[in-house]
Nucleic acid binder design. Sequence first.
DNA 1: TGATTTTTGAAATATTATTGCGCAATCTCC
DNA 2: GGAGATTGCGCAATAATATTTCAAAAATCA
Lengths: 166, 166
Amino acid sequence: MAGTRLDPIDRKILAELQADGRMTNVELAKRVGISAPPCLRRVRTLEESGYIRGYHADVDSRELGFEVQVFAMVGLNSQAEADLSAFEELCRCWSLVRECHMLNGEVDFILKCVAPDLSTFQSFLTEDLLKAENVASVKTSLVIRDAKDEPGVPFDVLEERISRNA
Amino acid sequence: MAGTRLDPIDRKILAELQADGRMTNVELAKRVGISAPPCLRRVRTLEESGYIRGYHADVDSRELGFEVQVFAMVGLNSQAEADLSAFEELCRCWSLVRECHMLNGEVDFILKCVAPDLSTFQSFLTEDLLKAENVASVKTSLVIRDAKDEPGVPFDVLEERISRNA
DNA sequence: TGATTTTTGAAATATTATTGCGCAATCTCC
DNA sequence: GGAGATTGCGCAATAATATTTCAAAAATCA
């Protein structure tokens, strides 16, 4: 079912649910122009086929006391697959690390981290990250402020691209 | 209402909704150990007070054809507030830019971008980003793979921290 | 074109969300 | 310490939504 192409209604559903993941199925159906039952079936299919990975409340971490956000560029000593995987597994265990992406180029990984305060981050940095097996170098940058933070799919680009190729 | 401290039930609600934003209120109430009506009232309060910014479906962008993910480190010529703001406003307009964070240190901004393919990204890079007013330098890194991608609050850290300070 | 497969939507049913309200616990201020 | 005010709970009733069922419409294909 993976290769199934999506029709315009499916894409509209994805766009709407990306914008508001708690929209009722009735409202969603109205917006995409079909009745509720087929709309719900489409949503289920999109979930089962992996187009929708899940739904998440967007919780304000600063309000909860996580005032510090940091990007860490990490270089490793060995880039053997086993060593890369080992580092990734470590990242999955560290709660303060919210994202871990492997990169091309000089740096091997970029991590997005959060912490309640600088000292908490510093102790994570010196006690965990820098002491971790195979870590050669870490460069960190504090986030001053967020101008845009909308992970997800740019559906306007997708639609434009589809209509061009149609 | 901003400074209102949250009780353990509120935090549990946030944690549950962060993990599954479409959970029914009945299920949520069951999990946090209160009945449905007060649970719903708490959720509404959390939404209105800004602890919950919204809900979003997590859509698989690769499945939709966005195969390329890139981090771009941007340096500007001028760091005057007006110039910083102007660049941020540009980023908000660019659909391919999903995140824009201002950093301390040598680099001024880090952008997370997506694109259907490399050539699309390249043309964005050369036609838009590099030609933009005040942009001095851009260094890009392609994402090879994601080891972890869980934006949000590490509630385990939060709870540990609260119990320690209790 | 006609048979086959898919998808739809009206209607019925099951669940869930929401409101109203009285009760109990906690606070507050004498 | 205690009366009144405040807060938060949960039961019960109602409104709305989700989900199933099924016959008809639409799309697909030989």
